[in-house]
Design a protein around this nucleic acid. Structure first.
Lengths: 342, 342
DNA sequence: TCTATATTGGAAAACGTTTACCATTAGTGT
DNA sequence: ACACTAATGGTAAACGTTTTCCAATATAGA
């Protein structure tokens, strides 16, 4: 395999290294004759360029790093899948960093563009992968970076100016809750995601707006603080059932939570939707196969991943304005987990 | 940020570049005084070594590439998560390649070690990411590579000698089916995974063995060829219901399939497990929250990912024998989706 | 104190590319 | 055939590290 470099190949083809490089990386900058000669030789000896050498020279690694709190979350893995595909189409590979929310690990991945292992950062967590110290340093320059939905404010930098792609979480939350209201529910609990996540805050705002629009009083005890996990759905649902004024409907801020929620409701003998309606969020591909099939807000997973990749790469290649924001469309999908209040 | 290199840092610290390199990368090879001086200077100016330079020199990228057919599959994403974590612990990053089973893309990722973007390959698909041509070339050298469960034979190379990590799929299949037999089921259907996947073939062999051990005749029409997806579970289950001698139990070779299977059974009015028992495979984290909670074979997801990472890295760093094989323990988890035959 | 040895630090080459700059050749119009 | 321009190809420097030598210095033994 392998061990032959551009010099050796140049010798074999009887041309200079410059010509080899051009013929392979910029074929149009070279005559057809040269191109053919070099490509033939390359093929013959099985030449494979060393990307490290090229990267060093061009200071372009061709990698982007994706910082994700939890890849095993179904919504995340869907986004990552389409991110990766879109990146690949443009010649980029994705280095992926599952951080489990551990600060230390975020920082490691955040440092990768400074160490030239990556050209840009895709942030799916709620904070920037840089230390306060770094952010404050006057010669700190933010690398190409886009965030998806979740980036919270930082005391040191105005994150609202960073490029992002997201759905309209406020409207989506409102849509979910409005659906319940239209079914006649008045006493609606909400199980939130991680309370420091902007998406949670926004969806909660949507909940508020829906209630307000319907003239239903907002009651603090209907807000149950959770996290975007199945287990949280299970745990918090038990608390919901303990409530003095038991709600007739629950808005779960993720489908995984809704799954845990429904399982728990059934376990305690509550019928869904006969006794309690449940609406989820995300429309993961399991949603329609739950029993009952889940009413939920569908996020455009594929489009989110693809858009993230494209904006980030545009940024890296300097063809995007640095503050591009993309709001993608969501959709309420009504299935069988919600029904009219009786 | 950043733009200062080792030369400049050496000048600032008043030492040579060699000393800087040693002080940072091999601190023990240098006096304490030197170490402190260099590290202090590095910190002061915010020096961050350029990994590309280092990689080029050492021809070690510090990356491994993971080739996965489908990251959004829950089992896969779990394995990848633990793979990534274990790799990170040893200082490696993972470049991840979701191929969707597309040959072209497998080849792209397979080429990454030749182009020095990665030091080793983790294969989760059923074929090697190299062309027949490459494999046959006499100067082809297999890069560090480990496969997990799924690698099929290749006409050009003896894949059985490659390092792998897996559970004992034959035994696991046998365990699942034996459980059904012990519940009194005689007419047991199986919905397989992708038929070209060794794990499917092995689990099927387990099915056969279980039947044989119980003296139950093996009937070809009880084998339903599927794929490891939710949708396949749905689609094939309909076929199962059409069978002349309708089975009283179904063994699904993945939990996602079982999910689709159960949803379909219920949709058609069959009770699980009253009418038909279902056993899955994987024990993804949703399994216990399905209704009914799923009886399944638990795979040690975390251990699989971790072991894969460690073997591969051992291979890269030359500390593993090149044919190491690891069989990890599985476990039958009995829940409510299986019941005695009546 | 002096020599023999161990430790430490430095100069420079190497890793495999790309590309700026220049020299050469081919192409065009007269 | 000639001058002028355009196209093409080559030489060599650069990218930022690590590491091989070797020289210098510290350490120890006598």
């Amino acid at each position: 395999m392998s061990d032959i470099g551009i010099k050796e190949l140049a010798r074999i083809a009887g041309v200079s290294t410059a010509s080899v490089s051009r013929a392979l990386s910029n074929p149009e900058r070279v005559s057809k004759k040269m191109r053919d000669k070099v490509q033939a030789a390359a093929k013959r000896v099985g030449y494979q360029p060393n990307r490290l050498g090229a990267s060093l020279r061009t200071s372009r690694s061709g990698n982007i790093v994706a910082i994700i709190p939890d890849i095993s979350d179904t919504f995340n893995s869907g986004v990552i899948q389409s991110l990766e595909r879109a990146a690949a189409e443009r010649g980029y590979s994705v280095l992926f960093g599952d951080t489990q929310g551990i600060r230390e690990r975020e920082l490691v991945y955040g440092a990768m563009v400074r160490s030239r292992q990556a050209d840009g950062i895709m942030v799916f967590s709620h904070r920037l992968p840089f230390t306060a110290e770094e952010l404050q340093s006057e010669n700190f320059k933010l690398p190409p970076l886009v965030n998806s939905c979740e980036l919270a404010d930082s005391p040191h930098i105005d994150t609202s100016n960073l490029p992002w792609v997201s759905i309209d979480n406020v409207q989506a939350g409102k849509d979910a809750v409005t659906h319940l209201i239209e079914l006649g529910h008045q006493n609606i609990a909400v199980i939130t995601g991680d309370i420091d996540s902007p998406s949670t805050l926004q969806r909660l705002e949507g909940y508020r707006q829906a209630l307000h629009a319907a003239g239903i009083p907002y009651r603090e005890e209907n807000i149950f603080q959770g996290a975007y996990t199945l287990e949280a759905g299970v745990r918090i649902t038990k608390q919901v059932l303990l409530a003095k004024h038991r709600p007739s409907a629950i808005f779960c801020m993720s489908d995984e939570m809704a799954m845990g929620c429904i399982a728990t409701l059934k376990e305690h003998g509550f019928g869904v939707p006969e006794d309690i309606s449940v609406v989820g969020f995300d429309d993961i591909r399991f949603a329609q196969y739950l029993s009952p099939p889940l009413t939920t807000i569908a996020q455009p997973v594929e489009a989110i991943g693809r858009t993230c990749a494209n904006i980030l790469i545009d940024l890296i290649e300097d063809v995007a304005e640095p503050e591009s924001k993309h709001i993608l469309p969501h959709k309420l999908v009504v299935r069988a987990s919600t029904a009219a209040h009786k």
